[in-house]
Each structure stands twice: as structure tokens, then as C-alpha cells.
């Protein structure tokens, strides 16, 4: 029984990273992924901000799930989430003002990020605090992983740098692929990511 619970918990944590990756498999939370992954720094900032909100709201919603009447649960989820979003908004404004300025409207928009409301409804409302924390952490890691990966690729091709450090070949720096920093590059990249996932994960499951 205890081992089963342990494997379950391990599954909650790891599932979010690849097999139930919110962006690539569930296809939710696309807006911030595409909009803020123009360089690795912004992507990491967005990833951490959304992760904080996701984990905190999962914990709180799981903690209050027994007092919340079924019929008004969605407005209550939204209030919990928007509390944490406002917190993140003001913390970032105070400590990382330049990042806050770049991310702009996307920080308050975390409140309508489908990943967070989706996990609150599908998981945290039905599971205990520890499981919800692990689930939130797993999904947050999956989200951050993909957004930072996209940030790194887009920054490398558009500036020849990663996290602001110039490492690309001279040819790339003198002729950067500016296309990648603009919206079309983001769409193209996520299309390719999704195709790779289809090739190696989804199709295999269908065959089995």
C-alpha cells in the first residue's frame, strides 16, 4: 500500500514533465509560451512566475477543497489564483523592474492561463495537499522546461547568444536569423516541437 502510494506520488511529479506536458501534449497555456520566449532570460522569468502561481494555487485549493461548495468553485479558484498573480506582479515590479516591463501584460494574464485553472479543477480539487503540490511542481517543471528551451533556441538563432552570453559562430552573429525573434519563428518552433513529440511519444502509444 505504501509503495503503491509512493509510486503514485512519483508519477504525479514526473508525468507533468514529458507524458502530460502542459504545452506539448495538453496544448494549453500557449500564449505566454510563445510571447515571452523571445530570449532565455524572459522565458525563465515567465516560467518561474507561472510556476509559483501554479504551485501555490494548487496547495491552497487543495487545502480548502472541503469547505468549497461545488456550485461556486470556479469563482473561488479564480480569486485564489488572482491573489497569487497580484503577489507575483508586485514582487516582480519591486525586485526585477526591467523584466516586469518586458513581460508587461503577460504577468496579469497568468490568471487566465489555462494550465493553472485546469490543474485546480482537474487535480487539486480532488487530491490532498502533498499530491497537489507534487502535481503542481511537475506541471510547472514541464512548462518551464519547454518555455526555457524555446527561449534558448530563439535567442541563439536571433542573436547568437544564450542568456545574454555570446557563443554563436561569427557568421550567425553578423547575419542573425531575425525571423526567430518575431512571431512566425515562435509558431514554427512549437510546430516542430509538436511534430517531434508526435513522432516519438504519441504515435508509439497508438501502436501499442
Amino acid at each position: 500500500m505504501i509503495t503503491k502510494q509512493k509510486t503514485n506520488r512519483w508519477k504525479y511529479l514526473t508525468q507533468g514533465i514529458i507524458l502530460e506536458n502542459p504545452i506539448l501534449i495538453l496544448m494549453i497555456g500557449l500564449c505566454p509560451t510563445l510571447a515571452t520566449s523571445t530570449n532565455a532570460n524572459n522565458a525563465l522569468g515567465m516560467g518561474i512566475a507561472a510556476s509559483f502561481v501554479l504551485i501555490c494555487s494548487n496547495i491552497v485549493i487543495s487545502a480548502i477543497r472541503k469547505f468549497v461548495p461545488d456550485s461556486v468553485r470556479i469563482p473561488i479558484f479564480i480569486i485564489v489564483i488572482s491573489t497569487f498573480v497580484t503577489t507575483v506582479d508586485y514582487i516582480m515590479q519591486a525586485y526585477t523592474p526591467s523584466l516586469h516591463k518586458v513581460l508587461g501584460v503577460f504577468i496579469p494574464l497568468i490568471v487566465v492561463n489555462c494550465i493553472i485553472l485546469g490543474r485546480a479543477e482537474a487535480f487539486a480539487y480532488k487530491h490532498n495537499i502533498i499530491d497537489s503540490f507534487l502535481d503542481g511542481l511537475g506541471k510547472a517543471l514541464g512548462f518551464t522546461l519547454i518555455i526555457v528551451l524555446m527561449g534558448i533556441i530563439r535567442e541563439y538563432f536571433s542573436k547568437g547568444a544564450i542568456f545574454g552570453m555570446i557563443i554563436g559562430p561569427k557568421a550567425l552573429i553578423s547575419n542573425p536569423m531575425l525571423f526567430m525573434i518575431f512571431p512566425p519563428g515562435g509558431f514554427l518552433l512549437i510546430g516542430i516541437f509538436k511534430a517531434i513529440i508526435n513522432k516519438f511519444i504519441l504515435n508509439k502509444e497508438v501502436v501499442e
Partner: peptide, 18 residues
């Protein structure tokens, strides 16, 4: 097969965005 559905839609969106 790998590009069916969402991937090709994203790539089409990329061209429209261009």
C-alpha cells in the same frame, strides 16, 4: 503522420504571421 493536426496548423500559422 507526425505533422498531422496541430503541428501543421502551427506551421501554417507561422506563414500567416510572416
Amino acid at each position: 503522420r507526425s505533422f498531422k493536426g496541430y503541428p501543421i496548423a502551427f506551421i501554417a500559422a507561422s506563414l500567416v504571421a510572416l
